[in-house]
Design a protein around this nucleic acid. Sequence first.
DNA 1: TCCATAACGGGACTCCTGTTCCATTTGCTG
DNA 2: CAGCAAATGGAACAGGAGTCCCGTTATGGA
Lengths: 205, 205
Amino acid sequence: MEYEGADPGTVRPGGRTARVRAAVLRAAGDAMAERGFAHLDLADIARRAEVGKTTVYRRWGSVTGLVADLLTDMAEQSLPRTETGSLLDDLKANARLVQRTLTDPRQGALFKAVIAAATSDARTAEALHRFYETRVEEWAPCVQQAVVRGELPEGTDPHEVIRAVSAPLYYRFLTTGDHLDEATADRAAEAAAAAARAGVYARPA
Amino acid sequence: MEYEGADPGTVRPGGRTARVRAAVLRAAGDAMAERGFAHLDLADIARRAEVGKTTVYRRWGSVTGLVADLLTDMAEQSLPRTETGSLLDDLKANARLVQRTLTDPRQGALFKAVIAAATSDARTAEALHRFYETRVEEWAPCVQQAVVRGELPEGTDPHEVIRAVSAPLYYRFLTTGDHLDEATADRAAEAAAAAARAGVYARPA
DNA sequence: TCCATAACGGGACTCCTGTTCCATTTGCTG
DNA sequence: CAGCAAATGGAACAGGAGTCCCGTTATGGA
């Protein structure tokens, strides 16, 4: 009796395999942005990627599996973080980055689709959590620096502050249909800064 | 040539029609809570509701149509709002209500499913927006009273404050897998209150 | 360069979702 | 309470998503 090999694509990841993955992920992103998560069709994606339908099913298995892979791919491309001298400006930069991402037609639709997928599939949810963890981790230092500078109380949880900036933007994005503009982004940053200064995110030492 | 009648269920809404609607909505809620939005199957829902599969397709057409109806049904059952004398306590009551709702296994799964459905269907999105508009409208007065009492600056936008309470809870609920506890709810209320007091939600007069 | 085999691609097949047709039940109205 | 039509329910049907089989391509190692 022989052991079945690991998942397809792991033994010979070079050349064609990599090209197929890239083409399929791109096609999946396009399809998602255009038609949304619910109307996603693996056969259509295979056609767009000029790849056999069988291949897509074999490598990713299901729509949610594909979305999860797309997400880990997105997490790997990290954006450079700006670095001003003030907490509020750093948070505003972060807020505007999120705002621009969600407002962008392609990226916005993609995020909607990914979040939708995560609600009904554990693997996708896991990938999504890691994605945001990475992003939050990336921006946390600017809060830590504000603590060092004495702008924020000792023991302030940097992760919570960063999450507080994104939260209202995502909430608006998902539950109300309102357009996200720069003023909204700035207000999100200001709210987070105000709450942080008031010591809301300071753990009791 | 005759005009086709309106949607089925509108001409004779009493008796059986109402029973069918109630049974199907209940079954849909159960199925959603158990299996999530992506795995939703109208045939299964019909079976649970002990109703003909044809009826479900004829009345609601698609999964998203059913979810939209479920949502308007939920919006109609409004919960009584508590009324303490302080802004922070009112906001905490609101935050805990949201926290309990999202934490509840059935309700939480239901909200996840509904939000997922709204990301890929305009009609469901519309219903979702109305749902949250209703809820926010319901709680806005307690912020307005705080303005009158002088706790908050003139021109504070009550809706924004209420949304600011929910936002971090939903953000956490959807993007991180963390458990929502009462401390988290209280912190959300405190953050919103702090930002409001700082004048972040005050429109420039 | 050459070989073993991982990975791909096309097509046939299956099963399940969603539609259509028509007989039956049951609200509503006179 | 009687009759008309709305609404339902079952069954047969159609179309498409996902699986399986097997021949073909091309990768990674010798």
